[in-house]
């Protein structure tokens, strides 16, 4: 597949008089191929938005190479800008303009037929509210308008930064369906979000960033597989005895209030057979698969601490040295 977005070694440091030097992105790599719905994850302040802004020419990178649809960014970005729809962070609009006028002005500025305006307003569910002033819109409606502005160009590549921000559950589902339908129509989508369950539902590929560096990248199922410890949840009448028996059978067992977790199990029948032979009948035996949230929290080190509030810069600073320190399944050929 051809690369739609390629970022290699992106670096960006912000300098302010008050806070001094702050490294936002530190040698970050990203590869998005045609047809993917690519999730871009990271804790707050990890460099997601800076990366997207640098890619779109809004922030000047200190170092690194970026291409969008085969053209160097930001120098040659104007050549492909008409094929890229994007929203970055929470876009703002003039409150006194209607959604219709806002989109019409953008369409005119970008040389897009203004007939597209009604079509995209319908697409994002604002058909009947498009003639109202934006200042009366809820956050979710503004977000829909932002997505509409990105769709106005009928893009080949859609870059969405937190598109579900402010949307109600119905809106989130609509956004998910919209992304799927766009992807089915051949649009490549790069989406950053904090709603990890959503990303897991709609994305086929994912890149995770922590403190400006990539910590994982690849197909979602393969990234998750990399964290699968082959654990099983076991419910049984006498957990203490069951734990003893499984331990004697060479299995790693962790006891909980009302169940056991058995790790490194290649064949679950080994658990039921071990316990059954001793007259202990298994009430529940279910695999514990890692989800994106647990992987994300582990990779970025952002799990909650029972007593201390976590600070935004408390996430993991990955090793920048050898590439093997990162989970990069595409690079390691797992995709093949």
């Amino acid at each position: 597949m051809s690369a739609v977005i390629e970022i290699e070694g992106l670096r960006k440091t912000f300098h302010t008089l008050r806070h001094g030097r702050r490294v936002a992105v530190d040698g970050f790599d990203l590869l998005v191929e045609a047809g993917q719905i690519h999730g871009f994850l990271g804790p707050n302040g990890s460099g997601k938005t800076t990366t997207l802004r640098a890619l779109l020419g809004l922030v000047r990178a200190d170092d690194g190479r970026m291409t969008v649809l085969g053209e160097r960014s930001p120098d040659h970005l104007p050549r492909v800008a008409g094929r890229v729809g994007a929203i970055v962070e929470s876009p703002q609009f003039f409150g006194n303009f209607t959604a219709h006028r806002t989109l019409r002005l953008l369409a005119r500025a970008g040389g897009v037929p203004t007939t597209r305006v009604d079509a995209v307003l319908e697409q994002v569910g604002l058909r009947d509210r498009g003639r109202e002033r934006v200042k009366g819109y809820s956050l979710g409606m503004k977000q829909r308008l932002a997505v509409a502005s990105a769709l106005l160009k009928d893009p080949e590549l859609l870059i969405l930064d937190e598109p579900a921000n402010g949307l109600d559950p119905g809106g989130i589902r609509e956004m998910r369906d919209l992304m799927r339908s766009l992807a089915a129509a051949g649009v490549t989508v790069l989406v950053s979000s904090h709603i990890l369950a959503e990303i897991q539902l709609i994305c086929d590929h994912v890149t995770i960033i922590s403190r400006g560096r990539r910590v994982a990248a690849g197909r979602v199922d393969e990234v998750l597989a990399g964290f699968d410890r082959h654990e099983f949840l076991v419910r049984v009448g006498d957990p203490a005895r069951a734990a003893q028996l499984l331990g004697e059978a060479g299995l790693t067992v962790t006891g909980h209030d009302d169940h056991l977790v058995v790790s490194d199990v290649d064949d679950p029948t080994r658990i039921s057979r071990t316990l059954g032979e001793q007259g202990l009948w298994v009430g529940e035996l279910s695999p514990l698969r890692p989800d994106l949230e647990s992987v994300f929290l582990e990779l970025t080190g952002t799990s909650t601490h029972p007593t201390l509030p976590r600070q935004v810069d408390d996430s993991v600073l990955p090793d920048r040295g050898p590439r093997t320190a990162m989970i990069d399944l595409d690079a390691e050929g797992v995709d093949a």
Partner: peptide, 17 residues
């Protein structure tokens, strides 16, 4: 107002010059 409200950013996403 355009710089402060993000209007310029919106426009630059369309015309990155």
């Amino acid at each position: 107002a355009d710089l402060n409200s993000g209007g310029v950013v919106n426009l630059l996403l369309w015309r990155p010059r």
